[in-house]
Design a protein around this nucleic acid. Structure first.
Lengths: 241, 241
DNA sequence: TAAATAGTGTCTCTAAGACATTATTTG
DNA sequence: CAAATAATGTCTTAGAGACACTATTTA
């Protein structure tokens, strides 16, 4: 701990980090939740919550560092996509004290993926998104945070390549389109979709085909797997006069 | 203060709120800065900084509340546009301790506007944006925060009505276009601009004209002065093959 | 050959880009 | 009248929407 001058001697809020980790699997958008511990003194025992925990001032270099650590702890994968969602802080969200959480937003491809509950959670599980939330009551203000995360995800998917982060490393254009449609909840037009994705140079073909009971499909991979692509237009802009 | 259970007894970061307040004036985009106090123990004495300060756990209901309070303290205006920009937290940004700031992003029209320095600042002043920053060294990591704010502003201006919040209550379409051009740093095509703004039902005419040494211009006001409009396309998408 | 999905082509439509033209005021 | 800016019109173009059509595999 560093030296403190006298005037810093006032109450400070609790500081935590929470993660909204999304994936697409079994034709649904899913979010990763963990079960709150039931030890005495723990708030919201037994309820499901976004994975997260306290910032460890002595070990975390910075907030994003802390978020990445928790992401790996929970999923075992280093997500390609992690962005800050926002912070929620007020006097009542945690019954223990004035608290602030820094919510992060992550997209992962659900490939091997062995879920680990980790220190502060009894169990971890994928919950399908229904409407703007999940079919279970969430701890803290996590329903609100999840709602904001979904809003952000859906609005960004309209003009970015975000779904490409929720798909296996090699994928067909139809599979990518399907990921878009699941997140957006509406069908997209095939030929326009392909033209756009190829024109954006978002993907490049690999020398492999996906076999099936029909014509095999060209497999692609992301050209730049780090940063998303921003399109100049949204999909299907409603021409509502 | 609420009761604390024993396991909450670990070091907590300092928690602050900072504001990037922008306006358009004298053909330039400007940001509001305050001068750091020079009392002993204060970090970065005499340097310019984004206005902000510690979260007051006993008086602030929540973070946004705290941001609004500081905004009014500094500018005397309740901005129509305030959004969260993000949070910056690490061990080194404040020499006093591990600290987290919650940065907010605000747009105001520079009408009457009497700047007030307020408690923790010797002086407050508008600085023109040059490139991605201002022509003075900033305290803390505020140069980075300002850079992120500018990035967010410029990218959002491509597909939203944000500049409408930096223009007086009544304005001509040319004035609005001018605000766009100042933020974006490039000229827009007049006829396309007008068609888009009118088609979006963003503005409505008031029964007044702006007089000048030429043909007078129709004055408009925002139709919904609370929420910005999102366009389905960006301005001038670069057709770079 | 039928079934199934991959992939392309055609025609229309919306809105932007470029730029010219008309409109309305003051001096 | 000239000067100046407001406001609109014309023609072209990029890319989406709708939907048909062709291609290539397995059973």
């Amino acid at each position: 701990m560093k030296k403190k001058t006298k005037d810093l001697d006032f109450p400070r809020p609790l500081t935590t980090v929470d993660l909204a980790i999304f994936t697409v699997a079994e034709d649904a958008l899913k979010v990763l939740l963990v079960e709150r511990p039931t030890e005495p003194g723990e708030p919201f025992p037994g309820l499901w919550a976004l994975p997260g925990g306290f910032v460890d001032v002595d070990h975390d270099m910075d907030l994003e560092d802390c978020a990445r650590r928790k992401l790996v702890e929970k999923t075992g994968v280093a997500s390609l996509y992690l962005e800050q969602l926002g912070s929620w802080g007020n006097a009542t969200r945690d019954p223990r004290d004035w608290s602030v959480t820094h919510a992060y937003f992550s997209l992962i491809a659900r490939e091997p993926l062995k879920l680990r509950a980790g220190a502060n959670a009894a169990d971890a599980r994928w919950f399908p998104i229904v409407g703007n939330t999940v079919r279970t009551r969430l701890a803290f203000d996590h329903a609100e945070i999840l709602g904001t995360a979904l809003q952000r995800l859906r609005s960004k998917v309209e003009y970015t390549s975000l779904p490409a982060f929720m798909v296996p490393k090699e994928f067909t254009l139809t599979e990518l389109q399907h990921a878009y449609e699941i997140v957006l909840g509406r069908p997209l037009e095939k030929s326009a979709f392909r033209t756009r994705v190829l024109a954006a140079k978002l993907v490049e073909p690999v020398n492999k085909l996906r076999q099936g009971p029909n014509r095999p499909a060209q497999l692609f991979r992301l050209k730049n797997s780090r940063t998303p692509v921003y399109f100049a237009r949204t999909f299907n802009p409603r021409y509502d006069k």
